[in-house]
Amino acid sequence: MTISETPAEALTDPRILRPAVLDLGDALLRPWGRALDVPGGIVPALVAASADPDIARWNPLSTIDPAAAEAYLDRAAARWADGGTAAFAITDSVDGTLCGNAFLQWSNRADGIAMVGYWLLAAARGRGLATRATTAVTRWAVETADARRIELYHAVRNEASCGVATRAGFPYEGTLRASYRYTDGYQDEHLHARLATDPE
């Protein structure tokens, strides 16, 4: 909601990201928050996720202790309430364990441009979850929030993420030089993007 909007106007804004549950069959995408129920508790699961070497390298989490994990959950809930960011926990449909994260946020809401991202825990890799979650979140944003263009960025050296982008139907558009600071310094990134008008 911008400063000039009233609550009534905000309710009719087609580009507000509203909480939803997306079903992938073997996994569910559920909004992050303190009420999220996973075996062993969501806070310990987030603390453990922050220690995963690949997550720490490519998508570092600020959830290294319980207080930081709780703050992460509170931020995710606040961003859902604002309608500008949709952060989904990916959980297993059978045992409810945490598998990863998929998110989408507006980079230019007025123009319908959003950015999508993801991370997966080691035990959840190899099932195509990142690709399917990215596809589902993108479709959801196009169908329910009038997203026009969805962009996906990843470090050039992150070949697994490049594969996810390609399989999810995000064509490569170019290389952005020294565009993002990772734990080991600024790195070049690939830009992939998908338009609402692109075929499935």
Rank of each mutant, 00 (worst) to 15 (best):
R127Y: 13
G128Q: 06
L98P: 04
C162R: 07
G100V: 02
T6S: 15
E5K: 01
T85C: 06
P66H: 02
S4N: 05
G117P: 04
D74Y: 04
F88Y: 15
A165G: 09
A78W: 10
E189F: 00
S93I: 03
Y72H: 15
R177F: 00
A87H: 13
A76Y: 06
A110I: 15
D74W: 06
N158V: 04
V38T: 12
L24C: 04
A78P: 00
V21K: 01
L104M: 08
I64F: 13
G169S: 02
T175D: 11
R30S: 13
I90N: 00
V116D: 02
G126M: 02
A160E: 08
Y153N: 04
A193D: 05
L152I: 00
G174L: 12
L121V: 10
L22N: 04
A51P: 03
V47N: 10
R132Y: 08
C162Y: 05
L73M: 09
D13K: 11
L28H: 02
E5T: 03
G33D: 10
V94Q: 03
I150Y: 10
A81Q: 09
R57L: 13
G84C: 09
L61A: 08
A76C: 14
L11Y: 14
H154M: 09
W119Q: 09
G33E: 11
L73N: 09
H192Q: 07
S107H: 03
A178V: 00
N158Q: 06
Q105V: 01
A8Y: 04
A56M: 05
A56D: 15
A102G: 07
R127N: 13
D26N: 13
E159A: 15
P19Q: 08
T135R: 15
G163M: 12
T138N: 00
A76D: 11
T2L: 08
F103E: 13
V116Y: 06
A81C: 05
G83A: 13
A27L: 07
A71W: 01
R34D: 15
L104F: 09
H192T: 03
A10R: 15
A178N: 11
A86H: 08
A110W: 12
A102Y: 07
N101P: 00
A110E: 15
D188V: 04
A78V: 12
F103V: 09
Y186K: 14
D13E: 15
T166H: 11
Q105N: 13
G174T: 10
D188S: 12
C162H: 05
